Simulated scan of single mutants.
Amino acid sequence: MTNLNVGDPAPAINLPRDGGGMVDLSETKGMKVVVYFYPKDDTPGCTKEAIGFTEQAAAFAEAGAVVWGVSKDSVAKHEKFRAKYELGIPLLSDEDGTVCEDYGVWVEKNMYGKKYMGIERATYLIDGDGKIAQIWRKVKVPGHVDAVLESVRAL
């Protein structure tokens, strides 16, 4: 597991997104980027989080930030998820898990005594120089989007 800290250079991101095309972190120089990792499309917590970021998309843009959601779901699953809830943020597909590994969010989880590997809900704020400005691990969805937005505005 990668152990990233505030001030570290953000690992590369170059992933396919819903709607087609690729998203590349190296093309965001000078912009703030919010990358939130979530376990699975169309599950209760992930849906609430995606809707929350969508509702605040204009405020993030006003603060000079782009927001990307990342999971291991396929582009096709992302497109269904996006259409079902009218989501307004790009959803990136990390099917092979490389970016999840690079950001240290592919972790051992434990549910009902059963251990398995999965994505830890986490958010990274990357500054205009490509460095990690803030990290939220083991995110609880209520209030999270507002906390991230506050940090973006303060950056």
Rank of each mutant, 00 (worst) to 15 (best):
N110K: 14
I51S: 04
P9V: 12
I135K: 02
V33S: 08
H78W: 08
C46D: 04
A76Q: 14
A76F: 12
C46N: 06
V141Q: 04
A59H: 06
V107T: 08
V141I: 10
V34C: 10
P44L: 07
E86A: 15
K32T: 10
Y112N: 14
V35Q: 04
G143C: 10
E62S: 14
P142S: 02
P11H: 01
D42P: 10
V141W: 03
V34G: 07
T47H: 00
E62H: 12
P16Q: 09
V23M: 13
G45I: 01
P11D: 02
G104R: 01
V6Q: 11
M31D: 13
E95N: 10
V70F: 04
C100Y: 06
I89M: 14
V145P: 00
K77Y: 10
V70T: 05
L87N: 06
K77F: 08
K114T: 13
V145H: 01
S26V: 12
T28C: 14
E27G: 12
P142M: 03
T47D: 02
G21A: 08
Y38P: 00
T47I: 01
P9T: 14
D94G: 03
R137D: 05
K140V: 13
P90H: 10
R82K: 15
D94M: 05
A65V: 01
I126P: 05
A65H: 05
S93N: 09
S74N: 07
M111D: 09
G104I: 05
A154G: 13
V152G: 02
W136A: 04
Y85C: 08
E108Q: 12
Y103W: 06
W68D: 00
L15F: 07
D18H: 13
I119C: 03
V6R: 10
Y116A: 03
F53E: 00
M22H: 11
I126A: 08
A50Y: 04
L91W: 02
L125P: 08
T43A: 05
D42C: 11
V34S: 08
M111K: 13
E55T: 11
T54S: 15
G113E: 01
P9W: 12
D42Y: 11
L149Q: 02
I51Y: 07
K114C: 06
E27Y: 09
K48C: 10
E120H: 07
G143K: 15
I126G: 09
N3R: 13
L92S: 03
D41R: 06
K72H: 10
S74R: 05
V23Q: 14
L125H: 10
M117G: 03
F53M: 02
P90N: 12
K140C: 06
W68C: 01
H144Q: 03
K77P: 06
F60T: 02
K115I: 05
E79Q: 11
P44A: 07
Y103A: 07
E62W: 13
I13L: 11
Q134W: 09
G30L: 01
E150H: 11
M1N: 12
G130Y: 00
E101Q: 14
K138M: 00
F53I: 02
K109E: 04
E86Q: 15
E79W: 06
Y116Q: 02
E95K: 14
P90V: 08
G104N: 07
K80W: 03
Q56N: 13
G130W: 00
R153E: 08
